[in-house]
């Protein structure tokens, strides 16, 4: 079943030199699966994720021929409709938990507030605790009463994920959710996300710069370059990528097994950006 339809999504920012298009006609559909969007900085991958949730920062503007979530036309959604969607049916996890958690509220209160939209007070408390356990926090009672600054990066990120997930969204957009984390913690966070897709049938858009990680974690991968999708392929078939940009990105990574020295560098061709 298709959860999200995106057709010809464009995001423009006005600059002194005239409007700059950072996302230029991106189209894809998402089912109850893990979709990876990879690209380097400035490829428009993050703006794509934000535009889906209607979070394009002003003065930027997002337009699309079709932007549909579970049959709801997001382009025409009223602020009231958005309130019913964001944080409840569709959520977003960002890179740095420090900017996404309220610093003067305990984790528990923030979680309960997110849960209260759909549950009673007592129920919200139970669900908050359960969710903290679900994201592999070993001492949920302590984290429940803690303020964000009292948590380590990994804990904070997990608390953040718990908050995004407590409303059991149908769609989660994760923008570099693990790149601030240590590799060993990173894998644990990915496991949580994976389980939510498997068990709850959530749709996941996983935005990352790390081709190797996306390749091993997602089902499908969109490769973005200069605001466009240059290649879409199954994650398992990443090694057989046909676009020279995707190949270049894969080849320029150093390998533990040892690869070429010097590392092959990516030579960008102007044609890719057209």
């Amino acid at each position: 079943m298709t959860l999200l339809h995106v057709e010809n999504l464009r995001v423009t920012f006005p600059t002194r030199q005239g409007p700059a298009e950072v996302v230029r006609g991106v189209s894809f559909t998402l089912g109850r699966e893990r979709l990876g969007i990879v690209g380097e900085s400035g490829s428009g991958k993050s703006q794509t994720g934000r535009a889906i949730l209607g979070l394009t920062p002003p003065p930027g503007r997002a337009t699309a021929d079709r932007l549909e979530f579970d049959g709801i036309d997001l382009r025409a959604a009223t602020p009231r409709q958005w309130r019913g969607l964001r944080g409840i049916r569709m959520s977003m996890v960002m890179q740095d938990p420090k900017f996404s958690l309220n610093p003067v509220m305990t984790i528990g209160r923030q979680l309960m507030e997110a849960a209260r939209r759909t549950a009673s007070r007592a129920e919200a408390r139970d669900r908050a605790m359960a969710m903290l356990e679900a994201v592999q926090i070993r001492d949920p009672a302590r984290v429940f009463g803690a303020y964000p600054h009292e948590l380590s990066g990994g804990m904070g990120q997990r608390a953040m994920i718990a908050m995004m997930l407590i409303a059991e969204p149908d769609l989660l957009i994760a923008d570099e959710p693990t790149s601030a984390l240590d590799v060993t913690v990173q894998i644990e966070v990915l496991r949580i996300l994976d389980r939510l897709v498997q068990d709850r049938g959530m749709g996941l858009v996983f935005i990352s710069h790390d081709l190797r990680l996306v390749g091993s974690f997602c089902d499908r991968v969109l490769v973005m370059y200069a605001g466009r999708v240059v290649e879409e392929l199954k994650a398992a078939e990443l090694a057989q990528a046909r676009h020279p940009y995707t190949q270049g990105l894969l080849n320029c990574l150093p390998r533990i097994e040892g690869g070429r020295r010097p590392l092959p560098v990516l030579t960008r061709e102007e044609g890719w950006a057209l």
Partner: peptide, 15 residues
């Protein structure tokens, strides 16, 4: 740095 830039800088340091 981005992966492609990382490769360039590592090559430079190596050289």
């Amino acid at each position: 740095l981005d992966a492609s830039i990382q490769a360039e800088v590592l090559n430079l340091l190596d050289r």
